[in-house]
């Protein structure tokens, strides 16, 4: 029977373990690295009505996050993360969904994490999201004139389990919020920004410091 774990994933885990082994083990000031895979659900980017009402939103997107951070003290950690999420932007009516264009959402953020217990933490994030439509079809879309960089704020919670002195596996839920508009939408007369809420669930593998319990 063939192994179902992709070779790239195994290589990634081995690399993470090697990096983790090379890291010092006392907590404060240390660096940690995290790789997160998950899925993200976004609320509508646009609501419009032509003949009938419809919404425009990205389909549920697979996500990959890479974060690097430092331990500030026993309770706080600071991390810088980048998230890649890609799915089809689609127009949804009562009659169904019509794909518009493949859309990648790049999110860069800075997160401040607070340890709540030995196995749980919460975080607040600020950052920016950049939508990147793919291919030549963008000329006929709301992204034809620009795909702006949009500030985001977010919250998250995580439970984690240490699987070795240096490796942690975590399950987390995250929420973020940004306002959305483009030049093409404004030119059309859709002049107000729209609030976009994004929720994601993910599994994180972290090459972490050997946490000393208080």
């Amino acid at each position: 029977m063939e192994c179902m774990v992709p070779r790239a994933t195994i290589r990634g885990l081995v690399a993470l373990q090697l990096i983790a082994t090379a890291l010092p083990t006392n907590a404060r000031g240390q660096i940690f690295l995290e790789l997160r895979g998950g899925a993200m659900l976004s609320s509508a980017l646009v609501r419009d009505s032509i003949v009938e009402a419809f919404t425009v939103r990205p389909a549920v997107a697979p996500t990959i996050d890479l974060a690097v951070g430092t331990v500030l003290n026993e309770q706080y950690r600071l991390a810088v993360a980048v998230r890649w999420a890609r799915s089809d932007l689609k127009r949804s009516t009562d009659g169904g969904n019509i794909p518009i264009i493949p859309l990648t959402a790049w999110t860069g953020s800075v997160a401040l994490r607070r340890r709540l217990s030995s196995w749980a933490s919460a975080q607040g994030t600020i950052g920016a999201v950049k939508y990147a439509p793919a291919g030549t079809g963008r000329n006929a879309t709301l992204f034809r004139d620009n795909a702006p960089l949009l500030p985001i704020v977010g919250l998250g919670a995580r439970i984690e389990h240490r699987i070795s002195p240096r490796l942690v596996v975590g399950l987390d839920a995250a929420y973020d919020f940004h306002r959305f508009s483009t030049l093409a939408l404004r030119a059309e007369g859709i002049t107000g920004d729209r609030s976009v809420h994004r929720f994601s669930l993910g599994i994180t593998l972290g090459a972490s410091y050997a946490d000393k319990k208080p």
Binding site: D48, I50, G189, I190, D193, S195, H197
Partner: peptide
């Protein structure tokens, strides 16, 4: 944060 999210006022274009 949630109140900020509630302030949603896009104007529909005239077609």
């Amino acid at each position: 944060l949630l109140l900020l999210g509630a302030c949603d006022s896009p104007n529909a274009p005239d077609r």
